[in-house]
Design a protein around this nucleic acid. Structure first.
Lengths: 132, 132
DNA sequence: GCGTGATTACTCGGATACAAGATGTCCGAGTTTGAGCGG
DNA sequence: CCGCTCAAACTCGGACATCTTGTATCCGAGTAATCACGC
């Protein structure tokens, strides 16, 4: 089990957008070059973020992507869910007579992690990245 | 990101072993049939549990698998780590100048989940499965 | 100047190629139990 | 009754085959800003 690279790209892109000027859209080329990934692939990832209503896109010349919400209203979990989906990490394929106790514990464990990510907002990190 | 089916099989097998007689080894065929999976595949999974020192195997006739530790000393995390490995869920592939702040948060989030799984012992579930 | 059209710089979406890992199967080898058989 | 041998019931491990998913590329289409040109 691993988080996908796409999640990695998404998080870093969001972090960059947060630290950039809020109004000017930033082209996908610039974002891709910064992370060493192809622009076409990154745009595919960003499309998911657009559909999740985290960012918005401006087409045409001088187009690009910019935040749609405030920093304080964007959590790690929002981004991760946009990329990885919201399905549970664990599926009990066995058809028990009753609800699977293992499944219940796994869901609870997962929620522990999600609660933390839900409370982590982009604004907390925006301070740290003045240089890098 | 998903937990693998192997983890599912491993957890259910452990739960069954916990609720069974502690001394008599249980054959892989019986375990496999119960979960609707091929015996050869399940044995491959159980080999990992053996290497993790959670269970032990007895070869030859009347052989099989049995617990190596007490119920109270086997946590969900032990089993999951045995199957999925202990590597971090998130890898920042970008080579920052400094340690990646995103990576740090993700590791912290992951530890939230692992702490919960570490504290969940098999003995807690053994009670629930009298029927199922 | 001022509209109008062409060019340019972008995003968007589908189709497709590629790679890696998860999933599952097959088979030969080693190991223990227990039954059968001969002394 | 004892000991030997042999078959049966197991696990073990490596080598495959297959399938799904993540990763990445290519290309045509649409869209908005900007520039050029003619009036």
């Amino acid at each position: 089990m691993k988080y996908s690279k796409a999640t990695n790209y998404a998080l870093h892109t969001m972090l960059f957008l947060v630290s950039a000027a809020p109004n000017k859209p930033i082209g996908v080329q610039q974002l891709a070059e910064r992370q060493g990934v192809s622009p076409t692939y990154l745009s595919k990832i960003l499309t998911k973020l657009v559909k999740a209503d985290l960012i918005e896109s401006a087409s045409g010349a001088n187009g690009g992507y910019r935040l749609k919400r405030k920093q304080e209203e964007i959590s790690f979990l929002d981004i991760i869910h946009a990329i990885e989906g919201t399905a549970s990490l664990f599926d009990c394929t066995l058809n028990h007579s009753s609800m699977c106790p293992i499944q219940q514990e796994m869901i609870e464990a997962e929620q522990q992690m999600e609660r933390y990510l839900q409370n982590k907002k982009m604004s907390e990190l925006a301070v740290k990245i003045t240089v890098d």
